[in-house]
């Protein structure tokens, strides 16, 4: 089996497990909803200024909701020593990591796509005007988010206080991704397309994704296998 086939098998396994139980995705979506509601108390949701910062709010929601999925990603393999079995399986640690990342990525994207319309309704934002560009930002930003998150999830898997440590490690590392995504989303939510002044942010997102995909694929072997 080639590297990508192996990764695909892991992805399919994770997705199937998640779709059968729906525990992480339900929790994550419910959490996103709760945060969206809570934010409406912090800022007057019908004012124009709130619409200006709505892109930022959206990514905070995604980052928070994402941790719930990412927390479960490796922790789910702990009972019955499934993680040891996976590591002992004849696939590389990098393939395992990539497969898990892709599974988390798809799950988080699904949560985001469901949250977007809800967000649009709650905050009176017309998010569909620049639909495809928004999708591009979503795709790039979410990959950075899941990548760092999955890596840190592997780092924190058998730690006491796992749920506390994961955000502590991921959020500071995610500053560039979240900042870029927020900037781009704010522009797009205002109905403006991505102009030349916003292109550096796109490049930053893509660069971050590339650098950290490479770095984590190299390092994860050491983390998982030791």
């Amino acid at each position: 089996m080639g590297f990508f086939r192996q990764a695909l098998v892991i992805t399919v396994k994770d997705l199937r497990a998640e779709i059968r139980t729906k525990e992480a995705i339900n929790a994550s979506f419910a959490f996103a909803l709760v945060i969206l509601v809570l934010f409406s108390f912090a800022f007057d949701p019908l004012e124009d200024t709130t619409r200006d910062i709505s892109g930022g709010l959206l990514w905070i929601v995604f980052a928070f909701a994402g941790t719930l999925i990412l927390n479960r990603s490796f922790a789910r393999e702990l009972p019955n020593d499934c993680l040891d079995a996976l590591i002992a399986a004849p696939i590389s640690g990098a393939a395992l990591f990539l497969g898990k990342s892709v599974a988390n990525y798809l799950l988080l994207l699904a949560v985001e796509l469901v949250s977007l319309p809800v967000f649009g309704i709650f905050y009176n934002v017309r998010w569909t005007t620049q639909f495809w560009q928004l999708m591009l930002v979503l795709v790039l930003g979410t990959w950075g988010l899941t990548l760092i998150g999955t890596f840190c999830s592997a780092l924190t898997v058998n730690i006491r206080l796992r749920e506390v440590m994961l955000p502590m490690l991921t959020y500071p590392a995610l500053v560039p991704v979240l900042m870029g995504s927020m900037q781009l989303t704010m522009t797009l939510m205002a109905g403006k397309p991505i102009g030349p002044d916003m292109v550096p942010w796109l490049k930053l997102l893509a660069g971050f994704d590339l650098v950290f995909t490479a770095a984590s694929l190299v390092l994860v072997e050491i983390v998982l296998v030791g």
Binding site: L155, L204, F212, A215, S216, L219
Partner: peptide, 30 residues
């Protein structure tokens, strides 16, 4: 947070490398 010495050292080293890569990107983004 990690009890086991070998695991602590390995994980911490990986995270340190990650952090070092991250800082210039953070700088760029800001």
């Amino acid at each position: 947070a990690i009890e086991e010495p070998t695991q602590r050292a390995v994980f911490a080293a990986c995270f340190s490398i990650f952090a070092f890569i991250d800082v210039p990107i953070v700088y760029l983004s800001i």
